[in-house]
Design a protein around this nucleic acid. Structure first.
Lengths: 349, 349
DNA sequence: TTGAAAGCGCTAACAT
DNA sequence: ATGTTAGCGCTTTCAA
């Protein structure tokens, strides 16, 4: 095993000089640097991580807690995790993967042991038990999601309020007058992570502003549950022509059911999804959707953690604006909606 | 920050005694142990990870390399990763998440720096560049998947040969005489990770043994590509009645196309999938399938890594036998197959 | 611009 | 059953 001392000996300098060449924390002459670098390369030297951590009080590790089971879709978690890992490496850091079931004890453990320099928490709940530990230990941290009382904590999230509004705008622009939001399970709105409530809020607000008739249906995501909704939504003369869907599990059944009921998408019903991009792409037709910006979330989380480690203030909420991508599942309503008081503004799709 | 010395002082013992109480590496009297444990609890002591690693030459970290983009389905990766993390924790170890794009340099880095004690490689390719580094550094390692020349390396994998055979058996038992395998992209069979070839081999062998007429169709997973296949498969008088599908992307289009062609599943065509369990469950009908045993793969990988760290020999291949779960997508062929020489054995589904 | 040396907090001989 | 002590390999003052 090669150590600093080996490299120093080979380069004919002191150990501290080698250390400084590697860290770049003090000016080194051209010649010395060259000889040291050469020795490093020749010996295939890699600084010992433990020794480094001990001496510098920095592990260069960022802990990331991922929920074992979650309301969130697994691939989304994975993509965020991978983005975090990739971006962290670019900053010379590694990522520790922790399962959410370690809970607050896990956060305390990595903080107190100095295993990690910072913590990224995914799928944060409204009243998350890990948050007090974040404050106690004062470890640099970033939350992906929004707790009830963020306080001075740093959070990153998709702007779900704006997302709901953007979906409404898109449908309204196309000329839809009667729309509905098929949302998360009813339980989520109560205990949930808050994203559902914020989407609903943005959806309702904007619908009112634009004078649309809007309804909201929580959905458990099962086939049967979705089937019940679809009947409600399609029946009657005042049938809905535009659907916003924020429920990955319901999407498959929904599209199937619409087909079964003889409603073509987008001719009879337009569908806007709020879902992982992959899902939007693999559906038939491909879905007009606002995707969870996984890479951007990961990137920002690491960036903010790094900023805190550098002593910069990062408090507050970093909201990512939604990007609605128009695909094949939305279009103008072809059946004239009954008694439209005035025509809605029509825009090219 | 609390250190060993603090705890020792509080408990009125020497630092080494505290260390031994914690590690359990030598007998300690009841009284001493109790006082030490109490001090630990009162002070909220957590051993410093860096110091520990430096002194013990063990980081208690297992590095896991996950491909950034892969032939494998993302959720599968995620579930394996989470299983690895959870099981590793039970053994007192943490998991380092690395992206596959770090390649062999990444393996060398964590091995040489002592950052990780062992490495778990996912989605190993037939001729993987990281494998030589595994040998050079002699770091304990487990491969999930099978390289061309495993040699003395430890590998874990689903037994894809047996999987192909099991699917054939199931269809044959139901009375199907003409079956087909819809497989991975043609490219995968050439450069691929080998799982595709082994499945095909098991499929073909068993079909021959049982006297079935079997065909094989590589598939690119696109809608168009799948559509072309479906036509070939369904046309003619000698149409296939049983399908084995080892292609996550093709499953959705396939089911859709069968419906479109007026073929009911399982009445007209039986479908056996080799896919993540979630996919089998969320399809309509739910699919008879062999699932990738994600948790078991993770569990075994960590177990084998731990065994190596304990100095036990683990060389060779650990194959997980397939478990075919019968669901709604398979049944007896209702249309008598033309001129069956002798009846195939019929078994209750 | 470089070197010498004192730790960082823990483990593991070596003692007793 | 417990204490003493010498490092582990690096960073970082302090000196020159």
């Amino acid at each position: 095993m090669t150590t600093l001392t080996d490299v120093a000996a080979r380069a004919g300098v002191s150990a501290s000089t080698v250390s400084y060449v590697i860290s770049g924390k003090r000016p080194i002459s051209q010649g010395t640097r060259a000889r040291v670098m050469r020795a490093v390369a020749e010996l295939g030297y890699h600084p010992n991580a433990g020794a480094r951590a001990l001496a510098s009080h920095q592990s260069n590790l960022i802990a990331m807690m991922v929920p074992l089971r979650s309301d969130m879709y697994m691939p989304v978690m994975m993509e965020i995790a991978m983005a975090v890992a990739a971006v962290a490496r670019q900053g010379g850091r590694d990522v520790l993967l922790m399962t959410g079931d370690e809970g607050s004890a896990g956060v305390r453990r990595v903080a107190a042991s100095g295993l990690a320099d910072a913590v990224i928490l995914m799928d944060v709940e409204l009243d998350d038990q890990r948050i007090p530990v974040l404050r106690e230990t004062a470890i640099p941290s970033v939350l992906i999601g929004r707790p009830q009382a963020p306080g001075e904590l740093t959070c990153v999230d998709l702007d779900f309020g704006a997302t709901g509004a953007a979906c409404v705008d898109h449908l309204a622009d196309l000329g839809h007058r009667r729309i509905a939001l098929i949302g998360a399970d009813a339980g989520v709105y109560h205990r949930g992570t808050g994203f559902a409530a914020r989407t609903l809020d943005g959806f309702g607000r904007r619908a009112r502003q634009r004078g649309l008739e809007a309804r909201h249906f929580p959905c458990d995501g099962t086939f049967e549950g979705t089937a019940r909704l679809v009947e409600q939504i399609l029946e009657g003369r005042a049938a809905v022509t535009g659907l916003v869907v924020q429920n990955e599990n319901a999407l498959g059944p929904l599209l199937h059911l619409l087909r079964q009921y003889g409603r073509a998408v987008p001719e009879d019903v337009s569908v806007v999804a709020i879902c992982p991009e992959q899902l939007a792409l693999q559906s038939m037709p491909q879905l007009t959707a606002v995707a969870v910006p996984v890479r951007e979330l990961g990137r920002r989380a690491v960036g903010l953690a790094a900023a805190q480690l550098a002593g910069l203030p990062t408090e507050g909420l970093s909201l990512i604006p939604p990007r609605l991508v128009v695909r094949g599942s939305t279009g103008r309503p072809t059946v004239a909606t009954p008694s439209p008081r005035r025509a809605a503004p029509l825009v090219e799709a």
